[in-house]
């Protein structure tokens, strides 16, 4: 009987471990500091997680389809720089769609290489990380990009505005997550993403166009990056060329923390969002405790390893690997 309960508990933890961890974590921090759970603080955490979160939602599609995307960080820098530059040249109303178009082109290029040409996604996006960084520097001439009239533009609404008392970045994050969450969980396309990542050959044998599915995932990912870049640009109204540097790994960390397997075929948008929030709250909680920002690096390291380890340990039914 006890053994049975333990097994059930194990299964529950294996399936919902990320939620349990999140809850335990929130309670612990709240006990340490009452301010942690206040509306203001929660808003501030979610708002600062929005950029990372929107990118993580897009990358979740790519990861479930069995690929990687290491280029999102430098792509986000690109979007930010481009939209800031165009803002003063053609006005925000035209700058935003142009920036989306250009970012989607980058996504389409990667999608073409990985989906249709079947090149290894790790190397392709590694190369694109560097190439897009170079593109951004070429575009900006290596200069920081600033909007001339920071007071008089409505462009700041995406990063700084509020609606119904809720900061706009939060609303955008929730909207993107909800919309793409539905796409992934409920639409035929979403089903195909899981099939292609779970077993690409079987998906092909079922008449699914694998290349097109992978291509679309990268398109979605780049669309999310453009949205994130928009928020980033709007929040600061000026930017360095390297604003997104290193974000690709944080994004990946959040997706992995959410339980998506790098082998593809598993993961959900909801869990990715939880993964993003955990990272955000860790950062915030540690800061509230008076610790420096870099302590979160170490904590994130430990949490990622533990999360993935326990996940696969639950699947194989053994804590330690069987590698001799």
């Amino acid at each position: 009987m006890a053994a049975m309960n333990r097994k059930d508990l194990g299964e529950f933890l294996a399936k919902q471990g990320i939620l349990v961890a999140f809850a335990v974590f929130m309670i612990a921090f709240t006990m340490a500091n009452q301010k942690f759970i206040s509306i203001d603080n929660v808003f501030s955490v979610v708002r600062s997680s929005a950029i990372l979160g929107i990118m993580a939602v897009g990358v979740t599609f790519v990861v479930i389809s069995g690929n990687l995307d290491l280029s999102v960080g430098s792509m986000m820098s690109f979007s930010t720089i481009v939209v800031l530059d165009l803002h003063d040249k053609v006005g925000p109303a035209l700058a935003i769609p142009l920036m989306f178009l250009m970012t989607l082109c980058l996504g389409a290029f990667i999608g073409f290489l990985v989906g249709y040409l079947r090149l290894n996604s790790l190397i392709v996006t590694l190369g694109m990380l560097s190439a897009i960084h170079g593109l951004t520097l070429t575009y900006s001439g290596g200069q920081n990009m600033d909007i001339a009239d920071k007071e008089g533009t409505w462009f700041s609404v995406f990063g700084q505005g509020t609606a119904l008392g809720i900061p706009v970045p939060i609303l955008m994050f929730l909207a993107v997550a909800a919309f793409l969450g539905l796409v992934l969980a409920r639409t035929p396309f979403g089903r195909k993403v899981y099939a292609v990542g779970g077993n690409g050959t079987a998906a092909t044998f079922s008449g699914i166009r694998r290349a097109r599915t992978v291509f679309t995932c990268y398109l979605i990912s780049s669309g999310c990056v453009a949205t994130a870049g928009l928020i980033q640009a709007s929040r600061s109204l000026g930017s360095q060329n390297t604003v997104g540097q290193g974000l690709e790994l944080e994004v990946l960390a959040a997706v992995i923390l959410g339980g998506a397997s790098l082998l593809g075929g598993s993961g959900t948008i909801f869990k990715t969002v939880i993964g993003v929030l955990i990272l955000g709250f860790i950062q915030n909680g540690l800061l509230l405790m008076g610790l420096q920002f870099y302590v979160q690096f170490v904590v994130t390291w430990i949490i990622i390893i533990l999360a993935v380890w326990l996940d696969i340990a639950a699947k194989r039914g053994k804590l330690w690997s069987s590698i001799a």
Binding site: L126, M128, A131, G134
Partner: peptide, 13 residues
């Protein structure tokens, strides 16, 4: 450096 980054990335691909 921008060209270097661009070139290295594209050459890798």
């Amino acid at each position: 450096t921008s060209t270097v980054n661009l070139a290295v990335g594209l050459i890798l691909i």
